[in-house]
Amino acid sequence: MKKHWYDNLWVLSLTYLVLGFFNILFAWLGLLCFFIPLIISLAKGNKGYCNRYCGRGQLFGLLGGRFGLSRKRDIPAWMKSKAFRYGFLAFFLIMFCQMLWSTWLVFSGAQDLRQVVTLLWTFKLPWHWAYHGTVLHPGAAQFAFGFYSVMLTSTVLGFVTMVLFKPRSWCVYCPMGTMTQLICKAKQKKP
C-alpha cells in the first residue's frame, strides 16, 4: 500500500500529549483537532479528517496493530449503537461547556486558576509542574488545563477500548467522528 505524508500524523498526536507534561499552554494546539474535522465536514461534506489525517486514530492503529496491544475482539453491540454514540456526544459537549464555564469564571475573576488536569471528568491530578506562568490572562491557562483534560481523557478511554476490542475502537464512539458524520448526513439531506 502506498504511504502518504499524512500516515505519519500520529507523531504529532504523541508529541501533543508529551508537550502537555512540560508546558500546559501547548494544550491550545489541540483546538486544531476540533476545528479541522468540523471545517472539512462543513466545507467538503466528507470525513476526510477521520479517513486520512486523524493522528490519534493512527496512534491507536499502530499501538494496537503493529505493537500488538489489542485483543482484536469485536466491540459490544451497545457501544456502536446510535443511542450510545449520540449520548456520548451529548455528554461530551455538556462537559466541554462546563469546562468553558470554568474558564470564564477564571477570566472574570470569580475563580482562581486551578492547576489540575481532570481525568475521566472525575479525578483531579495535580499538574502544577507544567505551568510556568503566562503573559496572557490566567484564564488562558485555565482553558489549557481544561482542554488538556479533555484530550487526555479521550486518549485514556481510547487506549482502554483499544486494548479490550479492536485497535481503533475509539473511532466508533469518538464525539468528533459522530459529529462530523451527522454534519455529512445533514448536508446530504439538504436539497
Binding site: M1, G45, K47, N51, R85, C171, V172
Partner: peptide, 24 residues
C-alpha cells in the same frame, strides 16, 4: 446503518475497492 465512516477499511483495502460515501 451501523458504519461510522472512519475509513479504516478504505485504508487497508489492497484493491482500493472501498470508498467512504459522502462521509456517511
Amino acid at each position: 446503518r451501523d458504519c461510522v465512516a472512519c475509513g479504516c477499511c478504505m485504508k487497508i483495502c489492497p484493491k482500493t475497492a472501498i470508498s467512504i460515501w459522502h462521509g456517511i
